[in-house]
């Protein structure tokens, strides 16, 4: 069965893909869909949904819909970017540890464990606070707290592949270690990593929202978490300020999770239906 066919067999995954595609489209087309600055005052403050503004206005008369559209860019961008950084760190360390074993493995596993013993969200808050809130510091913080599980996964994959015949053959024929790792082992280990990476994007988006909610977001960029955080004081007067960005987060994270599951089914057919991924 082809990859696409296996993926399409999972109805949920298809639905997730459609939603995700829509969100990505909104994020990419944000300057066209909502050409004005999302921070700009557009109307009277605290207008309820309906009226001139589909999703209402916030305390400074800013359009909530524009905030959600532009917020999609930041949420997805931070989600993808921090995951890429985490995957690069995690796979490099995991690969080295799993491939070489011995003392290299011992040392690197200790390092991974060190990071895993620190409560990840608290650690992220600490990092952002020290680095002063901004796009880069948030990406760094999320990457730093999320790479250890990837490293563990990469390590176990590399470890089991290391003893396979094709790797031994490559070693005997004198191919360099680096080349073996990149060209022989990595392609065979990549499917579980892709699945895990896709799910991590969802986690990263949630973490960014939580940081922004606490006021540790980039103060110059509108994000869903920030919108909820800024609106929580007026929740009783203006529910729409928190509810719509909240729905946007739920929808995005749900869509990514569904797609991740579909990828899992498609890439690891023998695990089909099993959700217990190491996280």
């Amino acid at each position: 069965m082809s990859f696409l066919k296996r993926f399409a067999e999972n109805r949920g995954a298809l639905l997730g893909l459609v939603i995700l595609a829509a969100i990505v489209f909104v994020a990419l087309a944000a300057p066209v869909l909502s050409p004005t600055d999302p921070w700009a005052t557009q109307g009277r403050p605290l207008l309820p949904p309906g009226s001139d503004f589909v999703l209402g206005t916030d305390m400074l008369g800013r359009d909530v819909l524009a905030g959600i559209i532009h917020g999609a860019r930041i949420s997805l961008w931070i989600g993808v970017l921090s995951t890429v950084v985490a995957v690069v760190i995690g796979v490099s360390i995991g690969a080295l540890a799993g491939f070489f074993g011995g003392w290299v493995d011992d040392v690197l596993v200790r390092v991974v464990e060190f990071f895993q013993t620190i409560p990840s969200f608290i650690f992220a808050i600490l990092l952002v606070a020290i680095l002063t809130p901004g796009l880069t510091s948030i990406v760094v913080a999320i990457a730093v707290v999320t790479w250890p599980p990837i490293a563990r996964l990469a390590r176990s994959e590399f470890m089991s592949l290391r003893s396979r015949e094709f790797v031994e053959a490559a070693v005997l024929s004198g191919v360099s270690r680096g080349r073996i790792m990149l060209a022989e082992v990595l392609p065979n280990a990549v499917s579980p990593l892709i699945v895990m990476g896709s799910l991590m994007i969802a986690t990263a988006i949630l973490t960014e929202s939580a940081l922004s909610f606490l006021g540790l977001g980039d103060p110059n960029r509108i994000s869903w978490g920030y919108m909820i955080g800024a609106a929580r004081t007026v929740f009783r007067q203006a529910w729409w300020l928190s509810v719509f960005p909240g729905l946007a987060i739920v929808l995005t994270v749900l869509a990514i999770n569904l797609v991740g599951e579909g990828l899992n089914d498609a890439l690891n057919p023998h695990l089909k239906g099993r959700i217990g991924l190491e996280r």
């Binding site: 921070w39 700009a40 400074l60 002063t132 540790l216 103060p219």
Partner: peptide
């Protein structure tokens, strides 16, 4: 919100404000 308003109001006349936390 006051900072955000200042950023937006000055932005309107072409003065780009970066908010510092």
């Amino acid at each position: 919100r006051l900072s955000q308003y200042i950023k937006q109001a000055l932005g309107e006349v072409g003065v780009e404000v970066t908010l510092e936390a």
